[in-house]
Amino acid sequence: MDKFSVFSARLVEKGEYFTSGHRACQGCAEALAVRLVMKALGRNTIVAMATGCMEIVSSPLPTTAWEVPWIHVAFENASAVISGCESGMKAMMRKGKLPPKKINFVAMGGDGATADIGMGQLSGALERGHDMIYVCYDNEAYMNTGIQRSSSTPWGASTTTSPAGKVSKGQYTQKKDMPKIAIAHNIPYVATACPSFPFDLMDKVEKAAAIEGPAYLHILSVCPTGWRIPSEEAIKYGRLAVNTCVFPLYEYEHGEYSLTYRPHPILPVREYIEGQGRFRHLGSEDIDSIQERTRMEYEKLVKLSEED
């Protein structure tokens, strides 16, 4: 690997496999997440991507932002498509139709593609045990179609289909816990990550790639457009999500939980909520209730990781 020297950022893989010229909005941390994931995966990778922002911004004909083989078929089926790539190549290598090679088979999709429309197909692929990685880029709504709610949108967020109004506080359901659903498939590796913590993220991707069998990565990907924050604050809000424990960073490896980062001190969720346009309508009591729920969820996670 060709690396910069001295400072830790400069130790990161220099090669870029998701390149410039993509059409993501200014300050899109989902695009940054894709870039970092690809750096960690490297050249010997095949990507199957779901319809969504990252697919659209990276592939307007006749160009592509991808430096690795990449396929997009539809919205809900990236995990089935990568299953086919993996199994097809496995058969051909076994039969001598292709020379053997270690390849990372990676499916990617947004939170809508993952937690909603593609849930059945993801479950099928995880359960079948393909040697693959599934990466969910969670920007907490259907951004590509104009900021509609998904089951991964947090309580209280105003989106175009969960708008705040006279009798509405925005999204009225709690965020679906996708990593736990992945864990319920008894796969060898599940982790959460955020590009505001790039080294943690890339370590997890490398781990997922090294492990045989299915791995699931859930990456909180700040979307300045949909969250209604200034573009330069995309990294800051990711950091706040983690430091307030709204989005804890943890791994689940061969049956054991571990927190990969413990914020000290834990910041009040208010710091995360305030300043995001999607939460602007929330009052003090609403933020308190988010605080309470965040605390409880985090404590559960700490307990799980201490048990192990």
Partner: peptide, 27 residues
């Protein structure tokens, strides 16, 4: 000598076939 991929729906069956055909497998 083939991979038999027992999927959870026909939508997935065709998607798996697309992925496999895209890597050059007979599907």
């Amino acid at each position: 000598d083939a991979e038999f991929v027992p999927v959870e729906s026909e939508h997935s069956a065709m998607s798996v076939c697309c992925g496999a055909a895209a890597v050059g497998a007979r599907t």
